[in-house]
Every structure is written in C-alpha cells, then in structure tokens.
C-alpha cells in the first residue's frame, strides 16, 4: 500500500520514518520533510475555521508525479505522513483513513509504554510490525 510511513514530532523532527524501497530512502525523507509545509498550512487553516472540532485526517497533502502524500495530525500535533505510489490507484480515501487510524492506535500504544520517553525516536517492535503490515501489502 504505502511506500513510506513517517511519524513526525510536534517540533517537526522525525520520530519514525520507514520506506519500502530502501534505495529511495533519502528521497522519501525529502518528500516527507517538504510535506510538513502543507501539514502546517492545513493545521493553521483548520485551526482558524473550526477550533478544536477538527478532523485529524488532513487528506492528500500534495501529489507528485510518482507519489501521493497523505497527512494526519494528532491532537498533540504529532504528524503522520503516508506516501503512496501514484500508480497504486486502487487505494481509496477510506483506506488511507483506516491506515492512519491504525497507525494512530499503534502510536498511542507506544506512547503508553512507560519505558518510552516521549520525544524519543520510536523503537517499538509492535509499531514496526504495524508499519510493516501497511508497507508490505503493496508488494
């Protein structure tokens, strides 16, 4: 499904980033980093209009020729970014949403771990597996 999944801290540094084809890892880093522009734009736009009643899912952040970048932001301003291959047209919005939801749940579990220091990069096996599940389905 996804080709890259990233979790970005409130302060915009990466907590977790993993992608499928490892040779393109750098490109995904750049892509995800750039997508933060749109995330911030969307967050501030939403903040203005709706206040706290906001949708966590930000939708398509921006498409590129090869990839589509979707965003999601938790209430604590932790951002999830999922990059999907553009050729993968079978993915519907709903599926992306459910992926984010799954990611969010797993992220919440990680945060609940008393041994995890919030703000540190995520090094959780369970989270890894969830992400792997999302990445693997595309192959």
């Amino acid at each position: 499904m996804a080709v890259c999944i990233a979790v970005i801290a409130k302060e915009n540094y990466p907590l977790y980033i993993r992608s499928v084809p490892t040779q393109n890892e750098l490109k995904f880093h750049y892509t995800v980093h750039t997508s933060l522009d749109v995330v911030e734009e969307k967050i501030s736009a939403v903040g203005k209009s709706l206040g706290d009643q906001r949708e966590l899912y930000l939708g398509l952040l921006y498409p590129t020729e090869d990839y589509k970048v979707y965003g999601y932001v938790t209430n604590s301003k932790v951002k999830f970014v999922i990059v999907v291959d553009s050729s993968n047209t079978s993915l519907r919005d709903n599926e992306i949403r459910s992926m984010f939801r799954k990611l969010h749940n797993s992220f919440t579990d990680v945060m609940c771990n008393p041994f995890h220091t919030p703000g540190n990069p995520i090094q959780s096996k369970a989270f890894d597996e969830v992400v792997s599940g999302m990445l693997a389905q595309s192959t």
């Binding site: 915009n12 540094y13 990466p14 890892e25 750098l26 880093h29 750049y30 980093h33």
Partner: peptide
Amino acid sequence: SYVCEGWSFPVTH
C-alpha cells in the same frame, strides 16, 4: 533548516 529540524538523512546528503 534540516539541522534545525533534526532530519538526519537530508542533513547528511
């Protein structure tokens, strides 16, 4: 900006 935001891969590159 990469250093500031802690993106190590882009920083390296």
